[in-house]
């Protein structure tokens, strides 16, 4: 697709072009044939009847608008996104604290922080959620938030650590040598840069967090999947397929929107950095800096 992937192949000659064209036709036929076969098979099982009307006309006295209101408002906004909105700020604060603790000079601070990241990256979120429900008697929402916070704090701290490690050493040395304390160097020099480089990875983590809210379904937290299941249990078995596909489309749309934010930011950051580098080279003082020393 991109030019980079074609690196594996030589520029195609006349023979290869013909061969690729034949493959293109053959595989198009195979894939379209497969899709058509699925469609015909589904049609013969009567899948293309009036059940799809639930998505616009509704069913059983529910209007289509009410169905979407349930899915988007009760499920997505008041369930899934609410848990995300509560968890993300808590994760941001705790992950910063944990990252700073991991870089602390004292081993009494450093090692517990190191242990926390390793242990909670290796334990299922669902186990933590169950712990919240059973041991701490939390309501479903708070159990889900607890699971998301504990796991994602560990992961985000790890991302930030990698970001700090990717900075040139001179950044920290310069901070210390102008008389900043190690903590001030971390807060004012290293972390802002690390967050900046790692912003795309941090935003991708939001997609992971968003998908993990669906674990709430298992403990009975009312989020998008729970609402979907309640709806098709109410409407009847034949409405399962349209409603599950609608839920999937909602998840995919939201996640792709978040991912595209990450891609957009990545491009913007890269452009911004290029401008900074270009500006630096005009400056006689830093013109001698070897290229490729910058982050990333």
């Amino acid at each position: 697709m991109s030019e980079k992937q074609q690196v594996l192949y030589d520029v195609p000659g006349p023979k290869a072009i013909v061969r690729d064209k034949i493959y293109t036709v053959v595989f198009s036929v195979v894939i379209l044939g497969g899709l058509a076969w699925f469609a015909i098979d589904a049609y013969q099982r009567g899948l293309f009847d009036d059940r799809w009307q639930v998505l616009w006309d509704g069913a059983k006295g529910f209007s289509g608008l009410e169905v979407w209101n349930r899915l988007l408002w009760d499920g997505l906004v008041l369930g899934t996104l609410k848990a995300v909105a509560i968890a993300v700020p808590i994760v941001a604060v705790l992950a910063l604290v944990l990252t700073i603790a991991r870089q602390a000079p004292s081993r009494w601070v450093k090692w517990p922080a190191y242990g926390f990241t390793h242990v909670f990256r290796g334990i299922p979120v669902l186990l933590i959620i169950y712990f919240g429900v059973i041991a701490l008697n939390l309501k479903p929402l708070w159990a889900v938030v607890l699971g998301l916070v504990v796991y994602n704090t560990a992961v985000v701290a790890e991302i930030l650590r990698a970001g700090i490690a990717a900075l040139p050493r001179g950044q920290k040395e310069a901070g210390l040598s102008v008389g900043l304390s190690p903590l001030a160097t971390m807060m004012r020099i290293q972390l802002p840069q690390a967050i900046r480089i790692m912003l795309p990875a941090l935003i991708s983590q939001i997609v992971v967090l968003l998908k993990d809210t669906s674990l709430g379904f298992i403990i009975g937290y009312v989020e998008l999947l729970t609402v979907t299941k309640t709806l098709y249990n109410f409407f009847g078995n034949s409405y399962v397929v349209p409603l599950i596909l609608a839920a999937a489309v909602i998840y995919i749309t939201v996640n792709m929107a978040v991912s595209s934010l990450a891609t957009w930011l990545e491009g913007r950051l890269r452009r911004a950095r290029r401008q900074v580098t270009a500006g630096e080279q005009d400056d006689p003082l830093v013109a001698g800096t070897p290229a490729g020393q910058g982050p990333l």
Binding site: V207, K211, D212, T213, S214, L215, F217, I218, L225, T228, K229, Y232, V240, V241, I244, L245, A247, A248, Y251, I252, N255, M256, S259
Partner: peptide
């Protein structure tokens, strides 16, 4: 971009 829980639910019901 689909949660794993939804894939399980899909396998089970859809």
């Amino acid at each position: 971009n689909t949660p794993l829980t939804l894939i399980f639910l899909f396998m089970l019901n859809a």
